[in-house]
Design a protein around this nucleic acid. Sequence first.
DNA 1: GTCTATAGCCAGATAGAC
DNA 2: GTCTATCTGGCTATAGAC
Lengths: 204, 204
Amino acid sequence: MKKSKDENTEEHILEAAKLVFQSKGMDGARMQEIADQAGINKALLHYYFRSKQMLFEAVFNNAFSLLAPQLKAILNDESTIENKIRNFTSNYISFIVKHPYIPNFIIQELNRNPDFLLKMKENPSFPNLDKFKKQLQKEIENGIINPISAEQLFINIMALNVFPFVAKPLLKAFTNTDDKAYNKLMEDREIEIANFIINAIKHT
Amino acid sequence: MKKSKDENTEEHILEAAKLVFQSKGMDGARMQEIADQAGINKALLHYYFRSKQMLFEAVFNNAFSLLAPQLKAILNDESTIENKIRNFTSNYISFIVKHPYIPNFIIQELNRNPDFLLKMKENPSFPNLDKFKKQLQKEIENGIINPISAEQLFINIMALNVFPFVAKPLLKAFTNTDDKAYNKLMEDREIEIANFIINAIKHT
DNA sequence: GTCTATAGCCAGATAGAC
DNA sequence: GTCTATCTGGCTATAGAC
């Protein structure tokens, strides 16, 4: 196994780079800090990834490819809109617990450089709302759901799920909660959000 | 008026610094770019604000003190919960049109350095939910509103209003809209969000 | 108050030994 | 593949003339 050592080091670097980039961002991150975190020398980072930019893109693409398939799976499964909402909410919360920095990292870096998405949108595996939209229209016609556009509903679902993690420091201050109390709020949201959304759209 | 020239320059610097810091962040911003934007020399920035850090804090505090009083006013006014929600939503959208970068700027920099808020929370003018909470409890007891905690409702209101602007690049890609179509979605939200929230919580 | 010039530092990247 | 040493450029900050 000639490559075992390489792959190991490469993995270590990626793991370290993930930690540093996701908490400091591209501009705030330092190659030295990544090297220290990985327990290796700065020169080795360049040996494996050539430049800071390329290392960053590796980390970013990894993060994005964790998020996208999940979204896609839920949008395109066969269950009802109500179930999709419940599934998404419960999946998303457990995803965040495993990868707390990802949403903010992705949002921040996309604001810095929106072109990242141009290549990705070409990919046929990029999530899209087509199926979700058809299904929603049908449920609206059948009087199960009140009229709402698929885009607005999708944005609302994302907003209610993602925002509390992205804006945690701000919301902690406004709601005057400490870390423990805020995390409790987040746990409760797993049920609360789904009910909130369904109340908002379900025909009565 | 001995100071008129100074104040003018200081204003120009702050305006330029706002533009640069809000789009690039503290780490990505360059003093040279701020100087160019203000049409002055780099040395003058230091003459007025001593350091990049201090200039940054001036910009950040300005941004925050635009956002906070607005929130406070709406939380503490005398109207019903339903009206508060409608007011907040309509005020917030026009606020964003005037200051599109502020929410993302504040959220981003608070994640970089949450301690910024520690001093601010001391200030008695810092927004809090006390009055909102009492009022909500009363309307729940009176059967106007379905049970929900003030914190969760507040987070939901913020999420639905703020997130679409913070995550614009990501949501534009997922909803597969161009700039024009996305802005149309945002306009529509001024009514849509308020109705969505009220449907979600209003007792029927 | 405003400028030019430059000090001084720090970060990304490379050369070259092992 | 991994290291030490170093180059090079860019950035904040200051000195000093006007």
